[in-house]
Design a protein around this nucleic acid. Structure first.
Length: 562
DNA sequence: GCAATCTATT
């Protein structure tokens, strides 16, 4: 008997990565009549869950009469991790009717499940339950609440929970800093970081990740560099997660040299880090490097995932060059990614942006399963290629199939109307979006409406539409009207619109260039001179360069604007 | 003894 116990303990201390080993161990425990012991049952339930055999885990749970809080937590967690929130919740409710009281870990698991399941109502109920059960000031439950409320975008509520805990632990600080970071409140995150250090709490990798994730604009580069400096001093740059977030921070800031430097110094590179680098090159317009690193990844025998493939295809689609896109299509077929909705939608997008409408539609037609994202890709691509009537046919198909159009669907349709000059259809679809589908118009929708009206000469109506919007109006919307004034040669309205833009965004030179161009068209050279002389230093426009590839030759076209 | 709250790429 002693031997058996000794043997079992040494076996249990190993991590069971294989289902067959778990089954062997389970059989052994049944033979030794230990299967009713909640200690062994908990371990085996956990092993089954790790090996994705939730059925066996549940069976064992059912057969164990004495259920400790550990055993309950294991089975609830197993369902929550398998995304079966219904079963997790129903087990939790059953648990509440037993004598075993849920502890902070039970609640933490349920709280997380509520946020992953987007169930705010249940989250609030659970919050009440936690307070009633006397765990209202517990920092483990508190951290889970801070994270959950943040995921719902309710950062203020998260902060109320955080400030209600008298002695926050490190995880609690980290949860709040991440909450701020995820919603772009990098300044509040930094303030909290400095408070935390003043109170003598040492940050860890999670803290740094939370801080860095808030830096989403290239104007925040120097803040990111400061945090990077702190990482170097504190030795956090060896942390794989921190390294990966540094790569993506520099990528977002379009600072690819630094991104690559961090990347090349990392000792363990996983797919997320590779993706961060490749996406960075893709989004900063360097598709050659994006493809180069994609190939390098493959040469190391690592397999890309749908997210990375979509990102590389987006890089290729920015250029009217279908060759590399076809190569990636081959890769997709070879590795069996064609059934992934995200991959197929990116392929459609790529082919249509490169002007290969037939190929894009073909990919769409053979997709086994189409969702609203795939339809949106097709509609937007058809619109770009001037095929507005086909775009509207697709819209009808969405409705026939019972799919629900979203904001992007209407964006794509309005864009199609702009390209085709379909003012009447544009007005109608804009009205239906609001009245019939109860979708609130966003900036991009107004930009398209203003363009559509303005290009048709209805400048006054476009202007009145903007005036009817609540303040502050996005500069993209005013900018759209300004370019319409340019196209219609209306310098009178252009002056009013431009003044609005100069007040809102004095640092953007594009609008000043546009106004000077409008004056020039009117022959008002004195005014041209005045606008130009207002532009000093950084506001001066760089000469534009653009190129297209035609039958293998690069045609370089240089336009001197200054 | 066992379960264990907070991290990165679209």
């Amino acid at each position: 008997m002693f031997f058996q116990h000794h043997f079992l303990h040494s076996e249990l201390s190993k991590i069971f990565q294989s289902l067959s080993r778990t089954k062997q161990l389970h059989a052994l425990i049944i033979r030794t009549h230990l299967s009713c012991d909640p200690f062994y049952a908990t371990r085996i339930v956990r092993f089954y869950a790790i090996n994705n055999d939730i059925h066996s885990a549940h069976n064992l749970f059912n057969k164990t009469p004495q259920r400790s809080v550990f055993l309950w937590n294991s089975i609830i967690r197993a369902y929550a991790q398998a995304q079966n929130f219904c079963e997790a919740q129903s087990l939790f409710k059953t648990m509440l009717r037993t004598e075993t009281r849920p502890d902070c870990f039970t609640y933490a698991c349920i709280i997380r499940a509520c946020s992953e399941n987007f169930n705010l109502g249940t989250l609030r109920l659970v919050h009440g339950g936690v307070i009633v059960s006397g765990l209202g000031l517990d920092s483990i439950c508190g951290s889970a609440f801070v994270t959950a409320y943040s995921k719902f975008g309710l950062v203020d509520e998260a902060s109320v929970v955080f400030h209600g805990i008298p002695e926050p632990d490190l995880v609690m600080w980290n949860s709040m800093i991440s909450g701020y970071g995820c919603h772009g409140f990098w300044d509040k995150g930094l303030q909290l970081f400095s408070r935390m250090r003043n109170e003598g709490v040492q940050p860890d990798g999670y803290t740094i990740v939370g801080l860095l994730s808030g830096l989403v604009y290239s104007s925040l580069l120097s803040i990111g560099q400061g945090i990077h400096g702190f990482c170097l001093k504190s030795g956090f740059d060896f942390n794989a997660h921190v390294g990966s977030v540094l790569v993506s921070m520099y990528s977002r800031c379009k600072c690819m040299n630094s991104a690559y430097r961090v990347f090349s110094n990392l000792s363990q590179l996983d797919l997320v880090t590779w993706s961060a680098l490749i996406t960075g090159y893709s989004q900063s317009g360097d598709y050659v490097k994006a493809l180069f690193f994609f190939k390098k990844l493959n040469m190391q025998g690592k397999m890309a995932d749908p997210i990375l493939i979509a990102s590389v295809l987006a890089a290729v689609a920015q250029f009217a060059n279908v060759g590399p896109g076809c190569e990636i299509h081959g890769y997709v077929l070879r590795h069996g990614f064609e059934s992934d909705v995200m991959v197929s939608s990116s392929l459609i997008d790529m082919y249509l942006k490169c002007g290969f409408v037939g190929l894009g539609i073909r990919v769409f037609e053979i997709m086994p399963e189409r969702n609203i994202v795939s339809y949106n890709s097709v509609i937007s691509g058809l619109g770009l290629n001037g095929l507005a009537s086909q775009a509207f046919e697709m819209f009808e198909e969405i409705l026939e199939k019972g799919l629900i159009p979203d904001e992007s669907t209407f964006s794509a349709l309005l864009c199609a109307c702009c390209h085709g000059g379909l003012v009447k259809d544009g007005r109608e679809i804009f009205r239906r979006m609001k009245d019939e589908f109860c979708i609130q118009a966003r900036t991009e929708h107004y930009v398209y409406m203003v363009k559509l009206l303005g290009m048709d000469g209805e400048l006054e109506e476009a202007y009145n539409l903007i005036l009817s919007l609540p303040e502050p109006v996005d500069c993209g919307i005013w900018g759209a009207l300004l370019s319409c004034c340019d196209a219609c040669g209306n310098s009178e309205l252009a002056e009013i619109v431009a003044q609005q833009l100069f007040d809102d965004t004095p640092e953007k030179s594009a609008y000043r260039i546009m106004l000077s161009k409008i004056y020039a068209g009117d022959g008002r050279w004195d005014d041209v001179q005045k606008v130009r002389s207002d532009m000093t230093g950084d506001l001066r426009k760089m000469p534009g360069v653009s190129w297209i590839e035609a039958s293998g030759n690069q045609l370089l076209e240089r336009c001197i604007n200054s």
